[in-house]
Amino acid sequence: MTIKRFTLEEANALLPQLKAELGRLQEMSEELEEQYIAYRMMKASYKTTKGDPLFELESKLDFMQVEFNLHMDNFSRQGVLVKMITPGLLDFPAIVDGEEALLCWREGEDRIAHYHGWNDGYAGRRRHPDA
């Protein structure tokens, strides 16, 4: 598998589109969680006697999960790593100063200005030399 590598300019150019996609992903995640909680509460209080009236809700949850996974896959297909949905945290594989690195964007930042090593994580963020 080939890993796409981004320049700082490429990653920042893609950021507006990704912010919108991330917003939709956050909405879907919240809705999925709310529906799952409602389902669990309904299931806990329901006494099954005949048939399965929860089937419709289970099917809805399954469909929501598939849709959510498809949206997550959109990031992967573009070569972007979703590290956290809320708050949004995205990583872009790159080469910085000749080394493998991840350009790092956190929700609330206007643009990508930091990077870290593959094993350093968010705590190891450093300012990008071209930012």
Rank of each mutant, 00 (worst) to 15 (best):
M64C: 07
G117M: 02
I3M: 10
A20H: 12
E100Y: 05
E31Q: 14
E31C: 08
F6Y: 09
P87D: 09
E9C: 04
L32H: 07
K43S: 14
F68K: 03
L61C: 11
I3N: 05
A131T: 13
D91R: 02
F55C: 04
E9R: 05
G124W: 01
M72Q: 13
K43E: 14
R106H: 09
G124I: 05
R5G: 00
M84G: 11
R40N: 13
L8K: 04
V82G: 00
R40M: 15
A123S: 15
C104Q: 02
L25H: 03
L70F: 09
E21P: 02
E107F: 00
L8M: 10
V82A: 02
M42Y: 06
M28C: 05
N74P: 00
Y39E: 02
L70H: 10
N74F: 11
I95F: 05
A131V: 14
L18F: 08
L18D: 02
L81H: 14
H71I: 01
S45N: 12
K43D: 10
Y39A: 03
L89F: 03
Q35G: 02
E100L: 13
F6M: 06
N12W: 10
R24M: 09
E58M: 14
T86M: 11
K60P: 04
V80K: 07
M84Q: 15
C104P: 01
E99W: 04
P129V: 13
R126K: 15
G121D: 04
L61I: 15
E109L: 06
L18I: 02
L15M: 12
A113Q: 08
D120S: 07
H116K: 00
E33H: 12
T86W: 07
E34K: 12
H71G: 03
H114A: 04
T2M: 12
K83I: 08
A44V: 06
V96T: 05
F92A: 00
H71S: 06
E107A: 05
R5W: 07
G121A: 06
K47F: 07
K60I: 12
E58L: 14
D52K: 06
R77Y: 09
M28H: 06
E67Y: 07
S59E: 14
K83L: 13
I95S: 03
L18C: 08
E21D: 15
A38R: 15
N12V: 11
L32P: 01
R106F: 08
E33Q: 12
E27H: 06
M42V: 11
R24A: 12
E67H: 07
R24F: 07
R40G: 03
E99V: 13
M28E: 08
A94R: 00
K19W: 05
K4Y: 07
K83R: 15
P93Q: 06
K83E: 14
E56W: 05
K50S: 09
F63N: 13
Y115W: 09
G79H: 10
E33K: 08
G23K: 12
K50G: 03
L22G: 01
I3C: 03
L81F: 15
M1R: 09
E67L: 13
T86G: 07
F75Q: 04
R40Q: 15
Y115N: 00
G121H: 04
M64W: 09
S76M: 10
L18T: 00
L70N: 09
E67W: 05
M72L: 15
W118D: 01
V96H: 00
K50A: 06
E107W: 01
D73I: 10
